[in-house]
Design a protein around this nucleic acid. Structure first.
Lengths: 194, 194, 194, 194
DNA sequence: GATGAATGAGCTTTCATTCAT
DNA sequence: TATGAATGAAAGCTCATTCAT
């Protein structure tokens, strides 16, 4: 059933998040999902095939969570950024900041060696940059950002800060690190005196 | 000899940079270094043992490159940041930005599962943060940064931006991405009208 | 239905011809016939069961083709041999001589390890030898073959030449090889100056 | 050591002879040779790699046995053919004719699907044909064969008869079948009244 | 110090067959 | 009848490590 496939994808997305793609062995997948080898290969033609499905899943979860529910909503730009940052923090708090970014992790592991995986992940980051840029443009039009600012690059920079913050947080295994990062972004964009 | 050990470490640090730790197989190491199995296990008691040596090596290279040669030098603070960014870019240009940060990559791969590796990498980031913070304090004293700014968090944020920028760059396999990030940091700290 | 069973058998006989018995996987069979697993095991209790049915089918096709339509016909002996050789050539031309003898191939693959399969194939060859022998006896009576000739052994030898010719032809992947063989048999039995 | 490699090749050539290439599983090889998986892959990079080595080995054994020791010797042509047939019979008697031709079997199994294996085997048959043809030419010059006879095709036909005879023999699992074939060839070439 | 043969657990994948619906 | 999910043994192969020389 589709639900079984979905179960597997969900379970494995957690495995990928904690252990990475290569380091998640088929045996881990079978143990965690409780299915047999044969059944696995009934649903997926290879581990790589599953990998693509999981990445699609992780990305679309993130898209819903950040894009649809927040960035695409009709709200004041600063509020959207604030909510986005809070949402990311909330997601991290579920695992005490030990896992880092499910997408960023895969980007590091796979970008140089698997063009298809790389492309999917790159596509996510591109969309994210665009959506943030739109918000920055709004802010710029409201006079809240200097008119000479390159909003595309600034958006890219904000996302870099978030991803780098998640990297440092994962390295410290401490979510407080990411809280500092959020605070600095909020300071940078004056998100508190709204 | 010590020089043989060093040769191995240098060669493997490149392998770790491109393929990651787990994905660098002993056979890759032997092929790349041209030594035999027996010799390898004569010099290192395990792959993990080599891993530690390589991480130490990579970190101390980075320390020399960024800390000793730049951040610890008696120069104006803005100049030091500028040079640091340029140095990182130069290093990336050697591989067209395809590999990303040798330390950040390992931080993502290993932080959650190997406490010793994690600690070594965390220690590097801590030092980096401290050194950048000192510079920001100087700038703050010179009135180039607002007095209420939390320099520790701001330093952490700058490093996050750099690491995240390298992550996005690796994902796009395009060094231009990182150039944007540098430009935004320079804009943020007014590094050009110095 | 019987016709469904027959469809499967026909399709699989082609698979066996090109890939052999062991190398024809159930998945090949399902893909080629378009049926599902359940349906397969409804019609056949195992792959081996199907194997027997296919061998029976291939043999009876050959019997019709060579025995009933040619060797059992009331025609001059030399004509029958000539037609038999031409028929075999025609069959091979359908696949450019790439597949070889459907029965000889299976004989090589299965004779040593499966007594039932072996027996079925051996039975075919025995019949063939007998029918050819009868023809040679006729020719002997007509004075076209020396009276001391052992017709049973000569018949066996002719079939060996044919099967070996098909083997060499398959190995060269070139039907011309078999044409040479036919020519020599025709020369041997003076089939042209009839 | 080279001798270990050779041991494996010899052992496996027997396995290939009885079970065929595909049907000889790695586990059979390991059980029969008494080595471990790791060791196997230390000596051969794949089963296919071993396959090539085994085929080379089988062919060169046959070349020594039939070509160097018999067909290339300075002897009367009829004697050479006689000895060749006897040698082949002797080889078969070692296994009571149950295995068939080590080369013919592989030719049937592999010719259609593996071009490299096919080529190696085809090359053997070509040489064989040439050597037999030379003998037939000699006989023709001695007036023992009709001058209009196409010796190339006749040589090919003799080898086809031998190979087909071995096929029928294997199918019957009875070496007597091949004795009949030999007898007929001897009759055909008047090898007894020498 | 140096070589590479040997080990064996573990990897991803395949396959004929059975079972539940 | 018919479907395809489920099973699990076995396939070919990889890998870090140890051992004998």
């Amino acid at each position: 059933m589709a639900s079984k496939v979905n179960d597997i994808i969900c379970t494995v997305s957690t495995l990928f998040h904690t252990k990475g793609y290569e380091n998640t062995k088929l045996s881990d997948i079978l143990a965690e999902t409780g299915i047999g080898k044969g059944q696995f290969y009934h649903y997926f033609k290879s581990k790589r095939d599953l990998g693509q499905a999981v990445i699609d899943h992780v990305i679309s979860e993130m898209e819903e969570c950040l894009f649809i529910n927040i960035l695409d909503q009709p709200e004041p730009p600063k509020m959207k950024i604030k909510k986005m940052l809070e949402k990311i923090l909330t997601l991290q708090l579920e695992h005490e900041g030990k896992r880092g970014c499910p997408i960023g992790n895969l980007a590091i592991e796979l970008s140089e060696h698997d063009p298809i995986f790389r492309e999917k992940l790159a596509c996510f980051f591109e969309q994210w940059e665009e959506k943030v840029q739109q918000i920055l443009v709004e802010m710029q039009q409201d006079g809240e950002l200097p008119p000479e600012l390159n909003t595309a690059k600034k958006a890219r920079s904000m996302i870099a800060t978030i991803e780098g913050g998640l990297l440092l947080m994962k390295n410290k295994q401490d979510v407080e690190v990411f809280k500092d990062i959020i605070e600095m972004i909020q300071y940078d964009y004056h998100l508190n005196n709204k």
